Simulated scan of single mutants.
Amino acid sequence: MRFLHNGCGPDREGEDAMTHQYKSARFDIDGDGIARFTMCKPEILNPLTDDLRDDFEAMVNTVEGNPDVKVLILAGEGRAFSAGGNVKGMAERKDAQAAQARTRLYDAHNWLQRLYNIDCPVIAAVDGLAYGGGFAFALVADFIFASEKARFCSVFGRIGLMPDLGVLYTLPRVVGMAAAKDLMFTCRSIDVEEAKALGIVHQIHRSETLMGAVDDFAARLAHSSKDAIAITKRTVNGAFESTYGDVVDAEANGQAVMFTTPFHKEAVRRFMAKEPSLYDWDRMTK
C-alpha cells in the first residue's frame, strides 16, 4: 500500500504523507495503483457535508494526473453509499441568499466536473442508498456496481429543489430523456433491478461479494494503457455534444499520440515476438 489517510479513525503510516486531513472519508492508493475513496460517516448516511466536500476535492487533486493511480473506486460505509445533501446544514442556512447557493454549487463543480473526466476508470460500489447528491456521485463514475441493497433516487424535488451536482447532465445521458424526467419529476426511488434495466447499474452482486467483484474488475483495468483509457474516456464523455467531425479530430489527434506511447510499442513488440499480451481481458483472471 502506498499510503492511507483515515478520516474515520487513526491514520496508518505509509510511504507518503498527505497534507489534507480527511474527516469524512478514507482514502488510500495501493501498490497496484488502485485508489479507494470510502465515505465513512455511516451513522448519518454519508451526507455531503462541508467536510466531505473538502475530502472529495483533496482526493481529486491527488488522483488527477497521478501516474501511480490506474483505477479509482468510490464507496460508502453502512446502509448508504451517500444520502446526498446535508438537509440539517440547509436548515442552518435558511436565511442564505441565492448568490451564496449559486457559489456553493459552482465550488462543488470545480472538483465534480474534474472527477467526471478524471484520467482513469472510476467504479462506484453502491451497497445501499444513493439518494440526491449520492446518486450524483455514483453517476459520475464510469461503472456502477451495486448490491441487492442498493436504491437510487433523484430525491431533490421532495424538498422543493431541482436536481443538482450534475444529475441534469449525467442522468439523461445514461437513461434517456423520458426516463430521466420520470425519475426527476416523481422523485421515486428505484431498486437495483430497475436501475440495471435502465442502464444505470453495470453489474449486480450480492452484498457480501460486491467489493470483491469491484476489486477484481479494477485489477483487470489496472493492466490497461492509462493514456489510452484517459483520452478515450474524455472523448466519449463529450461525444453527445460533438459533431462527427469533432470526434474524427479527437480520434486522429489522440491516436497519433497513442502510437508514440511506451505501452503501444511494448504491446507491438510482444505481438511480433509471440509473447503474452500486456492487456488481454479475455485471458486475465484478475
Rank of each mutant, 00 (worst) to 15 (best):
M1W: 10
C8K: 12
G9P: 00
D11G: 03
R12H: 01
E13V: 00
T19Y: 10
K23I: 12
S24R: 12
S24G: 12
F27H: 02
I29A: 09
G31H: 11
G31M: 10
A35Y: 04
A35P: 03
T38G: 03
I44S: 11
I44E: 10
I44R: 12
L48Y: 05
D51V: 02
D54Y: 10
A58V: 10
V60C: 14
V60R: 13
V60L: 14
D68Y: 08
I73F: 11
I73L: 10
L74D: 04
L74G: 06
A83K: 04
A83Q: 03
G85N: 13
G89H: 15
G89C: 15
A91Y: 03
R93H: 07
K94G: 01
K94R: 06
A96N: 13
Q97H: 09
A98L: 02
L105H: 08
N110P: 00
L112K: 06
Q113A: 09
V122S: 03
I123V: 01
F135G: 04
A138W: 03
A138L: 07
L139T: 05
V140P: 03
D142W: 11
F143Q: 06
I144L: 12
I144T: 10
I144A: 08
F145S: 06
E148Q: 07
K149D: 07
A150W: 07
R151S: 11
C153Y: 02
V155L: 04
R158V: 15
R158E: 15
M162K: 14
L165P: 05
P172F: 07
V175Q: 06
G176R: 00
G176I: 00
M177R: 08
K181C: 08
K181Q: 09
M184C: 02
C187H: 10
E193C: 12
K196L: 10
A197Y: 12
A197D: 13
A197K: 15
G199Y: 15
V201H: 02
H202M: 01
F217D: 00
R220T: 04
R220S: 05
A222I: 04
H223P: 00
S224H: 08
S224M: 10
D227T: 01
I229R: 09
A230V: 06
T232I: 13
K233H: 15
A239Y: 12
S242I: 10
T243F: 10
Y244Q: 11
G245I: 11
D246P: 05
V257L: 14
T261G: 04
P262F: 01
R269P: 02
R269G: 04
R270P: 08
R270T: 09
F271V: 14
M272E: 13
A273Y: 08
P276K: 11
L278W: 14
Y279N: 07
D280L: 07
W281Y: 15
D282A: 11
